[in-house]
């Protein structure tokens, strides 16, 4: 599509620039470049949907500036706001909501697929936002222990495993190893029920659980939640009932910030 004069000036277009030695429109890998552009636009659209913004792009150009994909927009201010949010998410300065996470991961994967030595930046009207290398931004501990409220959806196998879903982990189920068959048998009685599990998990670079081991589990009591919790509060925290100003007590306004240990 031929670009208009307005688009050529870049005034009303958002650009995704691939930079690196010898990078030009004539030398880039077309599949990787189009994948990158497609994933970026999907990422921006998802952010815009979340923020209930109307993002409009129309047309496509490629500029010989290393190689820059040019996306003209009739609403450049909206496009810039969304692109800035996207950049903050990729830089780890803004949380990626779980509804945007899949498209963010797709774009990260497209970035990682580029040949070594190539980098990507987003060009707004007067601003250049270099996208940080994704491998070094999200530092995930390989293994950690956590406790989750989870529902058991499958259990079995000669080397027994259990498959759970947990609202704390989004919609994707995860599977963990079990120590022995008796544990699998005990769990079998709780199939499709919620329980509290303690698990040692391994996560991929995007934070999704990819493996793990069940360390302990507790079936829910079946008692009335409000009665149980109010009884717990009476035992563990009833001192609060005699405190007149709860907010003042919580804010510790009267307490010195410096703690001096006993001699």
């Amino acid at each position: 599509m031929a670009s208009s004069e307005r688009d050529k000036s870049g005034a009303d277009a958002l650009k995704l620039e691939i930079d690196g030695p010898g990078v030009h429109p004539q030398t880039v890998d077309p599949l990787l470049t189009l994948d990158l552009g497609r994933a970026y636009l999907r990422f921006l659209n998802k952010i815009a949907d979340e923020a209930e913004l109307n993002l409009e792009f129309k047309g496509l150009d490629i500029e010989d500036k290393c190689a820059a994909l040019v996306f003209p927009s009739g609403k450049i201010a909206v496009a810039e706001r969304v692109a800035t949010d996207a950049h903050r998410m990729l830089a780890g300065a803004q949380l990626v909501s779980h509804r945007v996470e899949a498209s963010a991961n797709e774009f990260r994967a497209a970035l990682r697929a580029l040949p070594a030595g190539q980098s990507v930046a987003v060009l707004l009207r007067k601003t250049r936002l270099p996208i940080p290398p994704q491998s070094s931004v999200r530092l995930q501990p390989l293994r950690s222990v956590t406790k989750l409220r989870a529902m058991l959806i499958a259990v079995g196998g000669k080397q027994p495993t259990a498959k759970f879903t947990s609202k704390s982990e989004g919609t994707r189920p995860f599977t963990v190893r079990l120590s022995d068959i008796p544990t699998a048998q005990k769990l079998g009685a709780l199939l499709f029920k919620e329980m509290d599990v303690e698990v040692r998990v391994e996560r991929d670079p995007e934070g999704l659980i990819v493996a793990g081991e069940l360390l302990d589990f507790t079936a829910l009591t079946g008692t009335d939640p409000l009665e149980s919790w109010r009884a717990w509060f009476r035992t563990a925290a009833s001192e609060w009932d005699s405190i007149e100003d709860i907010d003042k007590e919580l804010s510790r306004d009267e307490v010195l910030e410096t703690w001096v240990p006993d001699a």
Binding site: S168, T218, L220, T221, T223, P225, A236, A237, S238
Partner: peptide
């Protein structure tokens, strides 16, 4: 919340979840 030396385990009940 806790203001006691001996505290029972927080209940594992439906609906209310310690995270």
């Amino acid at each position: 919340m806790i203001r006691a030396m001996a505290v029972p385990q927080a209940p594992s009940t439906n609906n209310i979840v310690v995270v």
